[in-house]
């Protein structure tokens, strides 16, 4: 079980959205994390726009420590430590967001906000497959609950 946190989640969502607005306002780009990350991976096509993307990702990496300094409470996480499970998950997420041109931020937040049909269909699809996958793992196989 995890606690239902509607207020913190809503405020967190507003912050994510505000960040996406900063990216559009300053750089004129969609704040899609898989896209930003992918741009930094090979094959490389020039150095244009690399600096702000690297800085953006470093900002995400250090943010939990800023959260801990400001609030004084640790960031709690529960992550599977099964090697095969997590490698498989990572491959699927990387491959899927790569050929699907977006993830939760690019399609789910920015795309839906633009009322993009592609992003709406992509979001419904990954939500549905996420739900089906968790259902199979937890309720049919009965694995990690």
């Amino acid at each position: 079980m995890t606690d239902f946190t509607p207020v913190a989640s809503l405020i967190g969502g507003l912050l994510i959205g505000f960040s996406a607005l900063m990216v559009m306002f300053f750089h004129g780009r969609i704040a899609g994390i898989s896209g930003i990350l992918s741009r930094l991976l090979p094959p490389w096509y020039g150095m244009g726009g690399v600096l702000w993307r690297v800085a953006f990702l470093i900002g995400i990496v250090v943010s939990p420590f800023i959260y801990q300094m400001v609030t004084g409470s640790a960031v709690s996480q529960s992550v599977s430590n099964d090697k095969v499970t997590m490698i498989l998950a990572g491959l699927c997420v990387g491959f899927g967001t790569g050929i699907g041109s977006g993830c939760t931020s690019g399609h789910g937040v920015c795309g839906i906000s633009r009322l993009s049909l592609r992003s709406i269909v992509a979001t419904i699809t990954f939500m549905a497959f996420g739900i089906i996958t968790v259902y199979i793992i937890r309720h049919i196989i009965g694995g990690s609950a």
Binding site: G90, T97, G130, I131
Partner: peptide
């Protein structure tokens, strides 16, 4: 792509 992403998300609980 979205289907693969959803499967990976459901397995690990992480998106990018």
């Amino acid at each position: 792509g979205a289907a693969f992403f959803g499967i990976g998300w459901g397995i690990g609980g992480f998106c990018p």
